[in-house]
Structure formats: structure tokens, C-alpha cells
Amino acid sequence: MIKAEHISKSFGDNVVLTDISFELKKGQVLSIIGPSGSGKSTLLRIITQLERADNGTLNIDGDYLFKSNGERAEYTGSKKAREIGLKVGLVFQSFNLFPHYTVLKNITAAQRAVLKRSKEESEEKAIVLLRKMSLEDKAHSYPFELSGGQKQRVSIARALALDPEVLFFDEPTSALDPELTREILKVIRDLSEENMTMAVVTHEMAFAKGISDWAIFMDKGVIVEEGSPAELFDSPKEDRTRRFIKSFEE
């Protein structure tokens, strides 16, 4: 579904990603862990087109978003890029709901404006998703009336409403307290049981281990180690990985 090869990215002199390659297969869940500043968000932002890669190749669901010509990443045309963009959804740490829209409109706006669905169809879809998120009674509330966990569930519903092929989560629970975190982790777990293809950046080690089919540990812009969750979390080969995972154990 996603195939990344040799992606690199710098901000000025600051090299943020070096030679990142990985693969995410349909129906699988990938977790990405690593210390602050290791480039996890930047990687997700390149895949969701919020940043541009300097070099590398990225194939999403059979289409190339960009291809390396040896020197740098050559991007596909903007029309194609938009098309590819619709296949990936992103859930932010800070929710980024639209404060002036009701919960319902947060979920229907893009369906209508981007996918040109009818009002009825998009609302129907929104209601189904809200029910799934146990939020059907909040359809007409505004984001400021919701708890953090509820906001994050709305933002997940907003992303799912566009039927993405892959959903990316960038520390979806980092702004939440433990109880609300559990709430969101359950939603993501439920999605994985429906075989939603997902990649999750998270500091919730037990969750990452439990949910993912494949795990990546990044540090300073490189993939230090990757493997099945059992390998990576229980018997990491690299010293850096071991130390990082251990730091979450107390």
C-alpha cells in the first residue's frame, strides 16, 4: 500500500531524515517509535504532503507521489498528487478540528466539498461514524464543548469519512490524560480489527506492541531498527532501541 525508498529531508542545514525505507502492506498496522526530534512527524508529513521530500521514492497504492532521479525527488503533477492525497488520512496530536463547525459539519464538509457527496449521503456517513465513535449525541455540539478524547474521536471520524486507504496517526494521544488515552487507543484497536491500514506514531509502548504487525524505531532521522513487535519490543538488537524502550518501563 505504501512503499517508501531512501527518503531524505533537510530543513536548511538540519538533516531530519536520511535514507528512510519501509513498507506498509494493506490491512497492516505499522507503529513508529523514537525519541523527540527523530523525524517521525516529518516522515508522516511527507507522506501526507504537508512537507516535500528532498530525495527518495514514495509509492502510495500503486501511484508514485515522487520518484528519485538519483539527485532529488521528482514529484508527480499536482492533479495526481491531489488524487494520491485523498488516499491518505492524517490524525493530528492537536486534533485541529474546525471550531466554527459543528461536529457533524466537521465530518461532512470535506465529503461535500472534496468528494462532492450530497448532503444526505455525507450526513448519513457522518452519523454512522459518530455512532461508531459513541458520539452520536454530540453531532450538533461545537468542538469547544467536547473533551479532548471526544475531539480526537471526531477528528478520526473526520478522516475516516473520506474513506482513505491508509490512516496515519501522529501521537494521537499525547495531548490526552491516561483515561482519555485509553479511549482513543480502543478506537484505533477497533479500526485495526476491521483491517484498516494504519501507521501510528506513538509513545504508548504496550499499545504499539499489541496492535502492530511491524514496528520501526527511529533516531536522529534514520531507521535504527525494525521488526515484528515481538522482536523490536522484547529483544531489540540495537543498544539505542533497548535504551529507548527501557526508558518507558518505569
Binding site: T48, Q49, L50, R82, G85, L86, V88, G89, L90, F92, S94, F95, N96, L97, F98, P99, H100, A109, A110, A113, V114, S155, R158, A159, L162
Partner: peptide, 24 residues
């Protein structure tokens, strides 16, 4: 984040400006 969410959802720049940014 308002611009980023709009971009990821596929809104055009014009839509983002008139429907998301301007009212706020």
C-alpha cells in the same frame, strides 16, 4: 493546524480561505 487539516482533507486553497480561515 487549521491550514494543515484543510490540506490533508483535500480542500482547495480558495475553499480553505473562504470557509475555514475567513469566518474565524
Amino acid at each position: 493546524g487549521q491550514y494543515e487539516a484543510s490540506k490533508v482533507l483535500g480542500f482547495t486553497k480558495a475553499y480553505t480561505f473562504f470557509h475555514i480561515v475567513l469566518p474565524q
